[in-house]
Simulated assay, not measured.
Amino acid sequence: MEETWDETRVRELHDDLVDLYGPAERDGEHGSDADPGEGVRQLVTTILSQNVADENTRRAAENLFSTYEGYDAIESAPPEELAEVIRVAGLPETKADRIQRALSAVRAETGGAYSLAFLDAMETDAAKPWLTDIKGIGPKTASVVLNFHFGKPTMAVDTHVERVSKRFGLVPESASNAKVHDLLDELVPDELKYPLHVLLITHGREHCTARSPDCENPVCTRYCTCGGC
């Protein structure tokens, strides 16, 4: 009989992942101590990262921020020009449109400033819908910005987190990505949302890969229900 998941078992999973990989530490400041303009950079970079490898995200971000002097120049750039600048990130026309739409929404909300500082004062259940109401901003992008930059308690679910969570039985196999976000936000204690996100990604890359998973490790032995285990 499979064990049910509760807060105690989630904490045990976190501790077992720490034993395997070491603790997940945050980089830099977040929340009210963070640079207000960096929140917008996080948002733009996370849009670039959608469905693409980290190295291509980095290259696209370097191209973008070296080509344009400020967010106003990015927002007002000809769409076809902007798409060419970020082409290495894939889906260039779609992502150019999403970036310009997001910058326009931020500017409209603040009365002209390119800053997401206003989100810091909002509760998570209000800040997240504000972001996802922008067409092209899904729950993962919103959660990355809110958790990584503002330290708000919401868990970003990428392909690794979703795959491992389903194999471990934290969420149903049939759950959509949006539903996985909701379920993990409810299940995972707030202070573990960031470190567990990082550790599950690490486990998904190191052992619980999409194809030919390596299940010879204590975490998979204890928690995994996939065929390889």
Rank of each mutant, 00 (worst) to 15 (best):
T209C: 09
I99H: 00
T209H: 08
N147P: 08
G90P: 00
S115R: 10
V40E: 01
N56L: 13
P139N: 15
F150D: 01
A127V: 04
Q100F: 03
C224N: 08
H181I: 10
E38G: 07
Y71Q: 00
C226W: 07
T154W: 08
W130Q: 06
T67D: 05
D214W: 11
L17N: 08
L200F: 06
C229T: 12
R87P: 00
E191W: 12
V106S: 03
N177E: 13
Y21N: 03
V10R: 01
A89D: 03
V145G: 02
M1H: 14
P79S: 14
A83D: 02
A121H: 12
Q42M: 09
D72E: 15
E69Q: 14
Y68S: 02
L192W: 04
D16K: 07
A60V: 04
S32Q: 13
G138R: 11
C229P: 04
L184P: 05
K95S: 05
C220V: 01
A24T: 05
N63P: 00
H197C: 09
G228Q: 13
P129V: 12
Q100E: 04
A53T: 13
Q42A: 11
A60R: 02
K140Q: 08
V85N: 04
L64A: 05
V188C: 07
L131A: 09
T124S: 10
A73C: 04
S143Q: 02
T154V: 14
V180Q: 04
M122Q: 13
E173N: 11
R11E: 13
R9E: 07
L199Q: 10
C224I: 03
L43I: 04
I86D: 01
A34T: 14
R26V: 03
D54N: 13
Q100W: 01
L116F: 10
E93Y: 13
A73L: 09
E109T: 14
A117D: 15
E29I: 02
V161I: 12
T209F: 07
H160T: 11
G31K: 01
N217S: 06
L184Y: 05
G37Q: 11
S176N: 09
T154D: 05
E29H: 11
F65H: 12
H14Q: 10
R87H: 14
L119A: 11
V198I: 15
A105E: 13
A108C: 10
V106F: 00
E93P: 03
A210V: 15
A96E: 04
T124H: 06
K140V: 04
F65T: 01
R59P: 01
A126K: 12
E3G: 14
T46M: 10
L103A: 01
Y223T: 02
E162L: 12
G28W: 15
H197G: 09
S165T: 09
L119M: 12
D54G: 08
K135H: 10
I137E: 01
R98G: 03
L91E: 03
D16H: 11
P218R: 07
V144M: 05
P23I: 14
P195I: 02
V40W: 00
R9P: 04
F150G: 02
R98P: 04
E75Y: 01
G151P: 02
L192Y: 09
